[in-house]
Design a protein around this nucleic acid. Structure first.
Lengths: 150, 150
DNA sequence: GACGACGTTGACGTTAACGTAAAGTGCTTG
DNA sequence: CAAGCACTTTACGTTAACGTCAACGTCGTC
């Protein structure tokens, strides 16, 4: 990111520039501002399945994306178990039976509903914040022009 | 909500219709679909401070609003400690000093920033869901017209 | 070849947010 | 007045999501 290697001319082919295909656990951890412990824990919970080179874990683009999605899900209040459920069903999709797929659609509809409510919550909360901020500024202004006798 | 009491003519005065000013803990719990234990816990954590009639707690409109805001905050991923901090500062606002008020504004800005990110997260997540759903429907359709030999 | 940075596997600790169970109080209703 | 129901406090239990620590292996490099 801050290393100034000229990198020659960037490959202008149609596919993604596969310049840096793998990551070590520490790299990934710094990228997303989590600890390696967290990443290992997510693997233990079935959210990641990195390659192994001997003992050490090797993360590819796919794993990085999964981690990103996982963390986004977490910020939205989903539990790791919920996230795993979706990920597992997504992976099993191609040869999943109809029942499983319909179950997946149900789950997705549920998440969607959840996020609709969150959107509404955010709008309401933003109004509250606006309100509180206005009052605070009001009081502050009054303090400025009429400082407390104390 | 579904009780069909005629209620006489609703009071058409300017202020709020003060028909039902207080609530018992169980009532409030049912209203918000939480347990009484949760409500007591929130009190213990300094989020509520209901009146007492002898031993038992009496909740007023103000308490109900606080509980509503608290639960909304929780759905947005705020911790009870964070919520309490804002509530406390809000209560102490009228006679808060400038430093406290500025601190409050900082906190509010922070929450706001948080929610901007959440909005973005939700938009991204909704796209993911759209994508996953489309794939699922695709596979499902294929299953319908060409059932698996199994 | 010692050192430091990074990686690994257990295993136990910690925190938030309640759940649950015990034991008692107070009203009102048959 | 006994039963039942809602409320109370106290206290210990539980779960999720990691943190922390020990003990060890593996590089690169000075």
């Amino acid at each position: 990111m801050s290393t100034l290697k000229p990198e020659a001319t960037p490959p202008v082919n149609g596919t993604l520039p596969r310049q840096r295909r793998t990551y070590a656990i520490g790299e990934l951890a710094r990228m997303f501002e989590v600890t390696p412990r967290t990443i290992r824990f997510y693997e233990q919970e079935g959210l990641l399945a990195p390659e192994r080179r001997g003992q050490t874990r090797i993360y590819h683009e796919k794993d990085r994306v999964r981690l990103k999605l996982t963390l986004r899900g977490k910020r939205l209040g989903f539990s790791l178990a919920e996230i795993r459920e979706v990920i597992e069903m997504y992976d099993a999709m191609p040869d999943g039976n109809a029942r499983q797929l319909k179950r997946l659609l149900e789950i997705l509809a549920d998440k969607r509903h959840n996020m609709e409510r969150q959107l509404e919550d955010i709008r309401l909360m933003q109004r509250e914040l606006d309100d509180v901020e206005a009052r605070a500024r009001d009081v502050l202004g009054r303090l400025d022009q009429d400082p407390p006798s104390h």
